[in-house]
């Protein structure tokens, strides 16, 4: 089974938010909510400061706490690429998954169910890239199968320094940031 993930080049990302707009348009994300967003992190002490711009979203973790805590099975791992999804028809809106996510990647859709990034699975099933990856003007976002050593993401991870968000939370996230 494939295991989809992303490698995002923080050296190339300029924080233009095209990915954010593409996601909202592609997935009709309601006003006031975002499935992906831009984080700008400045670290260090002047003049030796470091700037990292990241396009963030659900990390589609290998050990997703949102799935294990769901009382109805609405949050589940999809057969295609082990993508973490929500079945709106099973979700009771208990918000347990929202509390369980250390990344704050989930929100409650105005219609009452938990919502989040789907890696645009409807596009991936047709052989297309997720909308955010497809529109990125700097080509900083890469999507593919982490278990395939020849995939775009695997070769980048093999050759570049990278990190994940909150590794100590123990969820094994699958969004990698190239530095």
């Amino acid at each position: 089974m494939a295991r989809f993930g992303m490698a995002i080049d923080t050296v190339r990302c300029v924080g233009c938010m095209d990915c954010v707009v593409a996601c909202k348009t592609e997935n009709s994300v309601p006003e006031g909510f975002n499935r992906d967003w831009i984080t700008t992190e400045v670290t260090g002490t002047f003049p030796t400061t470091h700037l990292e711009i990241r396009s963030e979203r659900c990390n589609h973790c290998d050990d997703p706490p949102c799935v294990s805590c769901c009382p109805t099975g609405a949050s589940h791992v999809h057969d295609l690429g082990a993508v973490v999804l929500v079945d709106a028809d099973k979700c009771i809106g208990c918000k347990g998954c929202v509390a369980s996510c250390p990344y704050g990647a989930r929100f409650i859709h105005p219609d009452g169910y938990a919502d989040k990034c789907t890696f645009c699975i409807h596009r991936v099933e047709q052989g297309l890239l997720p909308a955010c990856v497809a529109v990125c003007p700097t080509h900083c976002m890469h999507f593919g199968d982490l278990d395939d050593p020849n995939s775009d993401v695997s070769t980048l991870l093999a050759s570049r320094r990278h990190h994940v968000l909150l590794p100590d939370a123990g969820t094994k996230p699958r969004i990698y940031y190239l530095t």
């Binding site: 700008t40 670290t43 400061t49 989930r106 929100f107």
Partner: peptide, 21 residues
């Protein structure tokens, strides 16, 4: 110094989780 700027502002999630009343 660590300064974070996040464009996300989802209701009940940001700036701090407040899903349960």
């Amino acid at each position: 110094m660590q300064e974070l700027t996040i464009t996300r502002h989802n209701a009940l999630i940001d700036p701090l989780l407040s899903i349960w009343s």
